[in-house]
């Protein structure tokens, strides 16, 4: 019996979702592996093997101008990207969701106004600008990138939480819970959060993939990950001057970013179609 319902569940997701999920899992897997093992040590320079084109039996994706193995750098870059994106998304959720819930439960109060105006204010600072400010003061580092992207994520989650929670707060079962003497916090945890969870999960996948893009952008302009840590964005920055004679240096990290972001977005879309029955009806 259980098996039947499981296969039924699997079938409810579009095929493309599984495609995205498998690639995402693969990328996570690769980045975990890179913690303990990479084909080559990228801190060791090997000038005589420099700029080997991809397809080489020893260096599958070729080497860069220092003779470092590109495949190894891609693996380590994956780890950096996922770490930054994950931490920044986490920061956004932990701070943004409670803010949004408080704003929604106090809808119409000055407190709601203050929280939402504050949100708009933070929103006026693009992640890049925050990173610029922090870097100008503290110097560049991967932590700055995480903080900048994380701060940017807070109003995103606060806004989406408030919007979704507001529509839940108008439903009768919230009033029923109040009749039963539940306080705002209990209502938020027991009744509101479970009903907006699907929206939050989908938004998390969006912010996660945006985080990967943002990390690569910040590292590209030198505000994010610093050497010797590998980063896709830094690899692209390094490759720029050599693009005319060694385009593979730009292709490998670029395609890695695209595939990762695409896989996560596809997965998020599939998840949304499954979790949001309203959308499911529309597509039927």
């Amino acid at each position: 019996m259980k098996n039947i319902s499981l296969t039924k569940k699997i079938k409810q997701f579009p095929y493309i979702f599984w495609f995205g999920l498998i690639i995402t899992i693969f990328i996570f897997f690769v980045s975990f592996i890179s913690i303990i093992w990479t084909p080559y040590d990228i801190t060791v320079l090997n000038i005589q093997d420099k700029l080997i084109p991809p397809g080489n039996t020893l260096h599958l994706l070729g080497t860069d101008h220092f003779g470092r193995d590109i495949a190894s750098m891609i693996m380590l870059g994956a780890k950096t990207s996922l770490l930054v994106a994950f931490t920044a998304t986490f920061l956004g959720i932990v701070l943004g969701v409670p803010l949004g819930l408080v704003a929604a439960s106090r809808a119409g109060d000055p407190l709601d106004d203050i929280i939402m105006r504050g949100n708009d204010l933070i929103f006026a600072f693009p992640a890049l600008v925050i990173a610029i400010l922090i870097t100008a003061i503290l110097g560049p580092s991967i932590t700055n990138a995480i903080i900048a992207i994380g701060i940017f994520n807070i109003p995103v989650f606060a806004r989406i939480t408030r919007g979704a929670a507001l529509s839940v707060f108008t439903l009768d079962f919230i009033l029923a819970a109040r009749v039963c003497g539940k306080n705002h916090i209990q209502i938020c945890i027991e009744h509101v959060l479970p009903n907006i969870m699907s929206i939050l999960i989908v938004q998390s996948t969006i912010q996660f993939s945006l985080g990967i893009l943002a990390e690569s952008g910040l590292s590209y302009v030198g505000l994010g990950t610093q050497p010797p840590m590998a980063s896709w964005g830094r690899m692209l920055a390094d490759s720029q001057t050599m693009i005319s004679f060694a385009p593979h240096l730009a292709l490998a990290p670029g395609i890695s970013i695209i595939v990762t972001v695409l896989a996560i977005n596809i997965m998020g879309d599939g998840l949304r179609d499954y979790l949001d029955p309203k959308l499911r009806k529309k597509s039927a």
Binding site: S239, I243, P253, I257, I258, L262
Partner: peptide, 22 residues
């Protein structure tokens, strides 16, 4: 559009340079 969202614009810029400038 799904692919367009996933492409980092600075990488796209580099590829444009490679094709149209170089």
């Amino acid at each position: 559009s799904q692919v367009g969202i996933a492409i980092p614009n600075f990488w796209f810029a580099m590829i444009l340079v490679l094709i149209f400038a170089i």
